[in-house]
Each structure stands twice: as C-alpha cells, then as structure tokens.
Design a protein around this nucleic acid. Structure first.
Lengths: 113, 113
DNA sequence: CCGTATCCCCACGGATACTG
DNA sequence: CAGTATCCGTGGGGATACGG
C-alpha cells in the first residue's frame, strides 16, 4: 500500500506511514524481544526475503525506530535493536493488538451486529 | 497494500487487515462523528473517488465495522454508521494517534536517538 | 554472514463515464 | 443521490542470483 495521508492530518495516519510495509509490525515485535542479528530476524520471519528485510530495516532506521550496530569483524556481525521511539510505537500498538485478539482471532459473539 | 498476515499470528496484524485500504481510517474517523450519507462522506474525504469510497464501505460492512441503512425513497437515501465493533476499533486506534501526534506531527526532541 | 542487484507481477487505487 | 462499469498506471513486494 502506498499509504499517503488520507483526508485527515491526524496522528493515526502519520503513525501508520511508519508501519506501512508488509512486515514492519512483525519486525517491531521481533525486536521488542531483544537485540537480534540479521540472520536471526530472517529466521523469526519465515517467508520474508532478504531484500525486503533489508529494505524494511533501512526504512525503519531512517524513521528512527531501529538502531543498527555494525561490528567490524569477520565474519560480519550486525545487530538490530529498537530505539526508545520504536519501543514506544510498539507499545502504542498494543491496544490494537488486544482488539484484534478479541474481535478477530477469538470470535466474539457481537461480531456482526 | 496487500497486508496478508506476516510472521506472527497476532492481533495487531489481524486488526490491521481490517484497516488495510488507503482511506479506511479516515472513514472510521468520519463516521465516529455520527451517521453520514454517501455524499457527505465524499465531501468529508476530499480526493477520494466514488468507486473507492463505495468499495471501502462495502468491505468495512462485510467486516462488521459499518452498518448500511437504505431508505426506499426518491431520491435515494442511504446512511452509514459505525457498528459497536467499528467504534471500538476506532478507540483502539487512539493510542496510535496520540503517539503519531507526539512523535511525528509535533517534532519531539528525542526524534532520532 | 550480511547483504545488493535484477526482473517481474499484480493488486490497489485513480480517472472517467454512465445509470436506476 | 448513490452508486456501477471500465480502463489503466504504479510500485511494493516476491523470486532469484550474485558479491564483499
């Protein structure tokens, strides 16, 4: 989706642009568990391609959500971690997650009223 | 965006599928102010086309977020309103909106740390 | 191990015109 | 007023191969 701003110049739209990318929320979740290396992330996200993982990480880094740390050794060693900003975004997403569990994953009786 | 489920079968991904569509959050907001007619929505969402508004509304209806009520008169009269489910989704989105206002719209000092 | 570099597909949304 | 009906362009993401 190219989620350019819709009608309202609201915070929700603005925030959603930062998680616009098929795997970004998953990456946020994966990193919320702690620092991870590229290969570890790839393994945590079955189905993602290296190209997409790399480009998503670059964008999230540019958006200040993720910090990338390179250790200059052989073989290469790179670590990814959430910034405070990324961590707080993940927390702001939690009510949505709760809603989804309750209203989508667990079928609730008032589903279609 | 085709936001099919990512790595985690989590509520966040599930919820985000329901607001996957460029204008859906805006529609949610517009309807959170009260019942609206098709033409009124179109006017509240400058830039949206009739085709997209109609298809988004139908998807949201199928997802149980919106209720459509037809009055059989001439000229046609159709009203759209949020269901309890749509209303609660909108509420679950609020923390994200607050985060966006604080961390994106209003530039915050710890933006890139 | 950690990525680029290409090529390609197709779903989504925009534009436009038309109708009960 | 409240929508269909078409056609079309775009770009994000998948597949694959290769490189430091």
């Amino acid at each position: 989706m190219a989620r350019r701003p819709g009608a309202f110049e609201c915070g929700t739209e603005a925030a959603m642009e930062l998680i616009d990318g098929k795997w970004k929320v998953s990456i946020l979740w994966a990193l919320s568990e702690g620092v991870r290396r590229f290969g570890a992330l790839r393994r945590m996200l079955p189905g993602i391609t290296e190209k997409v993982l790399a480009s998503h990480l670059r964008e999230m880094e540019a958006d200040g959500l993720v910090r990338r740390e390179v250790f200059d050794v052989v073989p290469p060693h790179v670590e990814y971690a959430l910034t405070p900003r990324g961590l707080s975004l993940n927390e702001a997403l939690e009510p949505l997650g709760v809603w989804g569990e309750r209203h989508v994953l667990g079928q609730v009786e008032d589903a279609l009223r």
